[in-house]
């Protein structure tokens, strides 16, 4: 019962979808078609991502992550975070679990925010699409402004958050669950 309760919002959405299907069958079929495709997209991304994160958790020592993107990684850590985010593929929600794994391994909060920003808008495959669809001037200008903006916003958010608020990420509320929390 408690398990089902966690899905109450999702179940409400499904109920809405069914109502649409009942009263507007054509729209309902489109709706379920779209939802199905989103599900397929999520299934294409999430299982391997979580698998990688599980492996990363047991194989990569905390010291390694800290050395590359930790508190004292400096400019190199920031550059690495941008490269990591830009090399990614897939929608932004794929970056959230990775960000949480980074936090658990001792990555600097600023770098996690930079990674998130780079993933959202600096992804190389998307840049190539944009370049061909909207032209070099459009794509290059947007990319350049974004690099500056992402780092600036990351600094700002980093300053505006208290250590306790930053600790939410990686505290086990979303990722590893209770076992993870009692372990650390």
């Amino acid at each position: 019962m408690r398990g089902l309760l966690r899905y109450r919002l999702f179940l409400a959405i499904v109920a809405f979808d069914l109502l649409v299907l009942a009263f507007r069958p054509a729209t309902g079929i489109t709706l379920f078609g779209h939802s199905w495709r989103v599900l397929a997209q999520m299934l294409g991304l999430l299982p391997p991502v979580f698998l990688f994160l599980g492996l990363l958790d047991v194989w990569v020592p905390r010291e390694t992550v800290m050395r590359f993107v930790g508190e004292r990684s400096g400019v190199l850590g920031m550059a690495l975070s941008i490269v990591l985010g830009a090399a990614a593929a897939g929608p932004l929600y794929g970056a959230f679990p990775i960000a949480e794994a980074m936090a658990r391994k001792g990555a600097r909060y600023l770098n996690i925010l930079i990674f998130l920003g780079a993933w959202s808008t600096l992804k190389v495959p998307m840049f190539l699409f944009e370049f061909s669809a909207l032209g070099p001037r459009f794509a290059v200008t947007r990319w350049a402004v974004n690099v500056v903006g992402i780092i600036g916003m990351a600094y700002l958010i980093d300053r505006l958050m208290s250590p306790a608020e930053k600790a939410i990420l990686g505290s086990g509320t979303a990722g590893g669950g209770r076992a993870e929390r009692t372990r650390s």
């Binding site: 979580f50 994160l53 599980g54 492996l55 958790d57 590893g176 993870e180």
Partner: peptide
């Protein structure tokens, strides 16, 4: 690792 992956997901 697999257990952790499953639990987080």
């Amino acid at each position: 690792a697999l257990r952790k992956a499953k639990a987080s997901l």
